[in-house]
Design a protein around this nucleic acid. Structure first.
Lengths: 250, 250
DNA sequence: ATTCCTGTTACATTGAACGTAACGCGCTAA
DNA sequence: TTAGCGCGTTACGTTCAATGTAACAGGAAT
């Protein structure tokens, strides 16, 4: 684990502070310091600086939460990141049609990171959350792995494949075989690999150069999803992914 | 202009770099350095650090734009900042009813800052933008000034009140008189003070302690807005503001 | 071939950022 | 009441992280 010398430590830990506040609203100075293993004066200086720029703000209780500047930056980011900007209306469209949850996920730091979502208004639905990270090997998000060179796949996978449910694939050769199947069919259907009673269909989204940059998926409660629904989902997703890829210049 | 000693300069300018990227997508390293009056190696280190954490990312052209981490933080901020979280659905509701643009603005750094918006789908509509800053004295956003102590009002106003249109109020005593009227009626209607042919109605939003923390407004093209529409807007806005204030604990 | 941009690296200097220690304050418990 | 413990905060002397300078390589335009 070589620390890159061209990284500014104070900026880096200021970002860590920001992430701490994002994760736990109303968090206190001391707790941030404890979590990050830093001294209180240091974190105090960080928070003062961040507050001065509106990145965080004090709450009535004396804790901290994210500030207005972050909202402004976040809005700007949504229009700047091509993938999110282009995919959002298309995801909305698919979501309305199937009345189920749609998510867009990318590989980030050897994990799957949700960067856009659509949730239907019905009472019982699969919950999705922008910013949530999950392992790459469990659930339909494994499409993200499928089209990578085998060597890179290995780097992305942890030593140990943790089990979430009885259906989680923790056997490496079995996973490799599944990836092969995904490459053949161009999509991935999983049932209850991460949460019981949830089925998910995912397809890859291609970047301008033809590489896989994201996975687009529909997740739904198993009890109301029949086999022909899954076929329908797959068709819709493949079409949507094609539109997104086209928007990205592929 | 004393520089506060408890502010970390490298973090502070890293935030400035972030703002530069937000303002101008695809901006290049050299341009950021030029705009901020910093050296290239310094900005290079900033960008490397920010990129390493996903706050910015390189574009195909070699420039920089905001990254995925900012999207994640922005989403978290929207749920953490009470004002935005509570106001959003209410604004949506008002916007649907009147089929015109609704905005929520706060005072930030002696300017009005838009932190939430609703835009109707119709072709001709008033454009709104989260993050846009405008002077406090022009247009219906002057409600933000109306309920401040006179001394603070003076601090918020620039030396010179710039003119946007023939209708912009640049005469200080006239502005003071208008603020008095706003305090009496509890709302503000302006016509073409910032852009010709746009009318705007705004009401104050009260925080948990009864202070004015935001202005909620509807902006519409003048030609399709009759006098009784404005009355209708005012009624809706006052009701919406009351709901938001209640949600904030007032 | 020359000029003028980029982005980048190397390195010696220095002051910004650091940790330690101590403080005041508001709790809760004794 | 007193003691204890957590909080946020301040002051200060030390030090190494961050800095600017200078020089470099590559590309585009002249």
């Amino acid at each position: 684990m070589r620390e890159d010398s061209s990284i500014l430590q104070s900026v880096d830990t200021a970002i860590s502070v920001l992430m701490s506040v994002a994760k736990a609203p109303d968090i206190r100075l001391s707790e941030i310091a404890r979590n990050l293993g830093e001294t209180k004066p240091r974190i105090l200086r960080m928070l003062r600086t961040l507050e001065h720029r509106g990145m965080v703000q004090k709450t009535q209780k004396g804790g901290f939460r994210l500030g207005n500047t972050i909202i402004v930056l976040g809005t700007a980011a949504s229009t700047q990141v091509d993938l999110v900007r282009i995919a959002s209306p298309i995801m909305e469209d698919v979501g309305q049609k199937v009345n189920e949850t749609v998510q867009l996920r990318i590989i980030d730091n050897s994990e799957a990171l949700c960067i856009a979502k659509f949730e239907p208004t019905r009472d019982l639905r699969v919950h999705a959350m922008i910013g949530r990270r999950r392992p790459l090997y469990a659930g339909s998000r494994k499409v993200l792995l499928a089209f990578l060179p085998p060597q890179v796949q290995q780097q992305m996978l942890p030593e140990q494949l943790d089990r979430f449910t009885p259906r989680t694939v923790t056997h490496r050769p079995r996973l490799i075989a599944q990836l092969e199947a995904i490459r053949k069919t161009g999509h991935c259907i999983t049932r209850g690999e991460v949460s019981e009673q949830i089925v998910s269909v995912a397809v890859p989204v291609l970047a301008f150069d033809g590489s896989v940059i994201a996975a687009l998926n529909i997740a739904a409660p198993a009890f109301r999803t029949r086999e022909d629904d899954l076929q329908h989902f797959t068709t819709l997703l493949k079409d949507a992914a094609r539109q997104i890829s086209k928007g990205l210049g592929w």
